[in-house]
């Protein structure tokens, strides 16, 4: 399956990253090869088979909804942000 430049642009948009023209070329080739490989699943008959999304044996692990002391305080978390001001994380103007 060929991957067009438009499809690469669309996937880059879904992935939220900018790509150089060089990257687009090499990713186009790589994606074509990878999709070619995974397409071999076509030959496997899966009619009537239930999908498995997780291999954990349990479901609905409940806990009480209560506030517990947190290991990391507000300052420690804010310090992780590339930019913060007045106890808030700073981002470029949105509107």
């Amino acid at each position: 399956m060929e991957i067009t430049r438009e499809e690469i642009d669309h996937l880059a948009k879904l992935s939220d990253f900018s790509l150089s023209d060089e990257e687009k070329d090499s990713l186009g080739t790589d994606l074509k090869n990878i999709i070619g490989y995974i397409s071999q699943l076509d030959e496997l008959d899966t009619d009537g088979v239930e999908p498995t999304y997780q291999v954990f044996e349990m479901e609905n692990v409940w806990r009480e909804d209560e506030i517990k002391p947190q290991e990391a305080d507000r300052e420690a978390l804010l310090n992780l942000a590339p930019e913060s001001e007045d106890n808030q994380i700073k981002v470029p103007k949105v509107l």
Partner: peptide, 13 residues
């Protein structure tokens, strides 16, 4: 792709 793979996963298990 995705759904097909998760079905194949059942067969492997």
């Amino acid at each position: 792709y995705y759904l097909k793979a998760q079905k194949a996963r059942t067969l492997i298990i």
